[in-house]
Amino acid sequence: MDFFLEVLTGGLLAGVMYSLVAIGFVLIYKASGVFNFAQGAMVLFAALTFVSLWEHGIPFWGAFVMTLLSMLALAWGVERVVLRPLVNRPPITLFMATLGLSYVIEGLAQLLWGSQVHGLELGISDEPLEVGGMLVSQFDLFAAGVAGVLVLILSLLFNKTRIGITLRAVADDQLAALAVGIRLERIWMIVWAVAGFVGLVAGLLWGARLGVQFSLSLVVLKALPVLIIGGFTSVGGAIVGGLIIGASEKLAEIYLGPLIGGGIENWFPYVLALLFLLVRPSGIFGERAIERV
């Protein structure tokens, strides 16, 4: 039983790491209806920029702020070059654009900072901590705390502020948003900047875990089942989806793995997501399209 709890806790905490990436998707999807395939590349770009600046002797917070500014510049550029010319085009057009964008951003990162692997030591001990007889990773606890704070800030932003109402309005109906005088360009720029910030946080934590390297942009793929389960439009859903994926893949690996051969951790989340698609295609917390008959 203790072992079960330990696996479960470890899985839940690992899941939070997936959630961090998924939240970036949710933000952009909510405000523009675009599935931003380039989110992974943004995570990579942020992590690589940060670690390169840090290695050049710039102190932690200095590097953090400079990276944040570069994410803002990136958001500005994306809005100008990609989003603005594609206003009111079908979602698939925008999706394809972000697909291309992901390669551009990865290339840009490589051009600026080179392609070698960097280690990233955030100074958080990875010594397991003993909590009630269980061993829990301190790093995972820290990541979970960060994710919690992030979700709190974002849900306040979305539900309590004028910006939040405006963001949700744009997500619902772009033409109507234009008609009431909302400046779409400004909103997209804000949302991509916030997604860039979330990408930076995710990039630091994932970078510290895996090392800052180009495979970092592949964490996107693990965010997909998280989004399908949690729903594409809910920040809370991204968290719950991450927890479900994290816990179930670890439990499946331990208890199901020996029966059908190991390594199922890698594909189990996708099977789970497929099952969810059959039962609840909009995810647990996703907004269902309102249709009146």
Partner: peptide, 11 residues
């Protein structure tokens, strides 16, 4: 005011 009303349905 647009044709077909165009409220923000989820708001």
């Amino acid at each position: 005011v647009l044709e077909g009303r165009h409220c923000f349905p989820h708001l």
